[in-house]
């Protein structure tokens, strides 16, 4: 049974047809890397999965819930789907701990003590146990992104969407974030990443999806896809980025 099932979705921005019938099935515990040139629709696809973008045709089902353009249903869906952004999007007026505690308190109705303990635990998990009271601006990019991951995990999502989460980081900080993702994979978390980290996609990811011109151009187990790309577009993409 797939955790995420995307069936023939089409998405338009006005006249611009950005997703042209995309299919994708993601099994529980699978790590899927979506790669492709900018403008290929990979971020849009990711944002359709949790309803940040509406789509015009097709169907997306996550954890047996249909993703529809309905405020209430999307809020329910948000408990199953976590998201981490390229620019972290931490709340700058709150400490790292408060960032993590906010949604469990407001949405799940956890009391302060429970959410605080849970937040501390999650920050420790991402290696920031001592940064509970630090404000985002006093943290490095890598640390901020790890807080953002902890914040998503606080809602105990079944699948975590990562939208180019290392692209805004200095190169030396990328590793610490990827390490957290590896750890999540080891714990059985389902991950869907839009990424430019080809080594990570190849070595840690289970499946690679290469998107081109709004379509899934080529897909398969990551080692195979990288070792023997079938289409000339993927061949030229891989030779350009690796």
């Amino acid at each position: 049974m797939s955790l995420v099932s995307i069936d023939q979705i089409h998405k338009y921005y006005g006249e611009n047809h950005v997703l042209k019938g995309v299919d994708l099935k993601v099994a529980p515990g699978e790590v899927v890397s979506i790669i492709g040139r900018s403008g290929s629709g990979k971020s849009t696809l990711l944002r359709c999965i949790n309803g940040l973008e509406a789509y015009q045709q097709g169907a997306i089902v996550v954890d047996s819930q249909a993703v529809e353009d309905d405020e209430y249903k999307l809020r329910l869906l948000s408990r199953s789907v976590g998201m981490v952004f390229q620019n972290f999007n931490l709340f700058p007026h709150m400490t790292a701990g408060e960032n993590v505690m906010l949604a469990p308190k407001l949405v799940l109705g956890q009391d302060s003590k429970t959410s605080r303990a849970h937040a501390q635990e999650l920050l420790e998990k991402v290696g920031l146990g001592d940064k509970f009271d630090a404000y985002p601006n006093n943290l490095s990019g890598g640390q901020q992104q790890r807080v953002a991951i902890a914040r998503s995990l606080a809602m105990s999502p079944k699948v975590l969407l990562c939208d180019e989460i290392t692209s805004a980081l200095d190169p030396e900080l990328v590793g610490e974030v990827l390490k957290v993702l590896e750890q999540l994979k080891a714990e059985g978390m389902t991950l869907i990443l839009v990424t430019h980290e080809m080594n990570f996609a190849r070595d840690v990811g289970d499946t690679v999806v290469f998107m081109h011109q709004g379509k899934v151009w080529e897909t398969g187990p990551s080692d195979e896809v990288f070792a023997s790309p079938q289409t000339s577009e993927l061949q030229s993409f891989i030779s350009a980025v690796l």
């Binding site: 949790n50 940040l52 999307l74 809020r75 329910l76 948000s78 408990r79 789907v81 976590g82 998201m83 952004f85 620019n87 999007n89 931490l90 709340f91 906010l102 949604a103 407001l106 949405v107 914040r151 998503s152 809602m155």
Partner: peptide
């Protein structure tokens, strides 16, 4: 930044 709204939305805040 629009990302503040998006972060709230993905966390399920009303």
């Amino acid at each position: 930044p629009k990302g503040q709204w998006e972060a709230c939305r993905t966390l399920g805040l009303s």
